Simulated scan of single mutants.
Amino acid sequence: MASSYKYEPLPKNSIRFIELDPDLKDGKPQLKVLSCARDEAPEYISMSYCWGQDPESESIFLDDLPFAVRPNLFQLLLHLRYHRREYTEWRYFWIDAICIDQSNTAEKTEQVSRMETTYRNASTIAAWLGVPPAERNQERTGRDHISELSSPSLVDEIFTSVYWSRMWIVQELILAKNIVLLYGHLRLPWKGMSGVLQAWSTFGKSRWRHSATINLVNMTVGAAYTQEHGRALGELMRYLEHSEATDPRDRVFALLGLVEGEEREVLGTIFPDYEMSHEKVMLVTMAYLKQIYAPRPFKWVVKPQQVWSEKVFGLDKETWEKMWSETEGYETPHDLTNYSSVWNAKGIGKLLKPGQAGETFRGQKEELKRQRRKWFELRVDALRKLASESSR
């Protein structure tokens, strides 16, 4: 289904929002689009949902012009009108499929690089689980439907929703100030629901205990730590190897807002870049993981090929093995290989001499900083060289 709506260019450091009209037009949702500088953004709700594999077979109206969307987003917008009546403060919404011009690679790359800020600044993340097989309590008023979770059948529907397998939701929910789940006409505040789900996973069906839902609930328990310090990319990729993304490059890009400081600095010089192919993104990621976790002097200690399998990168085994070999030669010296030249025995001896300890320590510290900066530059150069030399 073709779209007649044409995007206006979005200035750098700007963002788009939508306003949802409470009335339908020809049975279809109608929305207004507005853009503004990020530092002038109004309070807004960020919608978290699963794109799905269905084609863009439905249409809505953007500024009175037809705009093609996937079925799940169409249902989200139909039901969002109902929830907006209950949440009167919900006026502006951010929805990636609409607020980012998906056909504009440059804009998409710039907006994805700012995704962490988009999620952090949203007043609420509203997670859309889809439409239940049979709608419940369509006319019920009030905001809290937690009591509905006494139904095992409803809990089973929530636990098995494909929503929880989506890669992007990890960043969305961990960085959120406030979360509410929308399931058809039901509204389930996360603060009350997460505890109920953990209880059901303990005392309910055994398969719920190891579900993607509980994995994410457990990750949000440590959300405050992740927001402040971040996590290692390798750790996140291993933990989420069964998660899915409509664009396979997002197996890495969707995690950038969660990685720790120095890793983010290195990776941010290369990613996100939607001009790269999926295989090249994974090739560079493999090389990076080797740089950090398996430098040549320590390969006998860490064997990343036993940790990061083809599943982590979303590749078939044959392709993964070939690409793993291609990363040979792009490693850089590991930090630990240089510590002996900085924190050496002679330097430690000087620390023990009266009057020299402070000066020696400061000198050693500055040398260590210089070395780390050099390692940082070597890593970035190696990754850029691999990206430019690879024909993938």
Rank of each mutant, 00 (worst) to 15 (best):
E265L: 10
S243C: 12
R85M: 11
Q364F: 09
P55K: 11
S113T: 00
M115I: 02
E8F: 09
Y5I: 02
F253Y: 15
Y339D: 11
L62T: 06
N215S: 12
D335F: 13
E331R: 15
Y288D: 06
V312Y: 10
G195P: 04
S341L: 13
K290A: 04
R251N: 06
Q371F: 10
E157M: 01
E389R: 11
Q306I: 03
S165V: 08
K32W: 05
Q171H: 02
E262N: 11
T105R: 03
T213S: 11
L368Y: 12
L233K: 00
L62C: 08
F298Q: 08
Y293R: 10
L186N: 02
P354M: 12
G195F: 03
A387E: 10
M276R: 13
E244K: 15
N104L: 03
K385C: 01
Y225F: 11
E235K: 06
A127Y: 06
Y49F: 15
S340Y: 02
K28H: 06
V33K: 06
N121H: 04
F17P: 03
T118D: 01
A106T: 08
V301M: 13
V307N: 04
G204P: 05
I98M: 00
L31A: 00
K322G: 06
W324I: 07
D381K: 14
L386W: 04
C50H: 11
L173C: 00
D250I: 10
V266R: 09
F253D: 01
C36F: 02
V196P: 04
V281L: 09
L255K: 02
L10H: 07
H334Y: 13
E262W: 14
D156E: 15
A37H: 14
N218R: 09
L383D: 05
F74S: 11
M193N: 08
V170E: 06
K365T: 10
T118I: 09
C99P: 00
E389K: 12
A2M: 14
Y7N: 05
I18Y: 07
S390Y: 09
R187P: 01
Y82N: 08
R38Q: 12
T319H: 09
W308S: 07
D381F: 08
Q198W: 13
T332A: 15
D316C: 07
M167N: 05
E244Q: 15
I146Y: 07
S147L: 10
L236R: 05
A97Y: 00
M115F: 05
I348S: 11
E275V: 02
K346C: 07
I179G: 03
L154M: 05
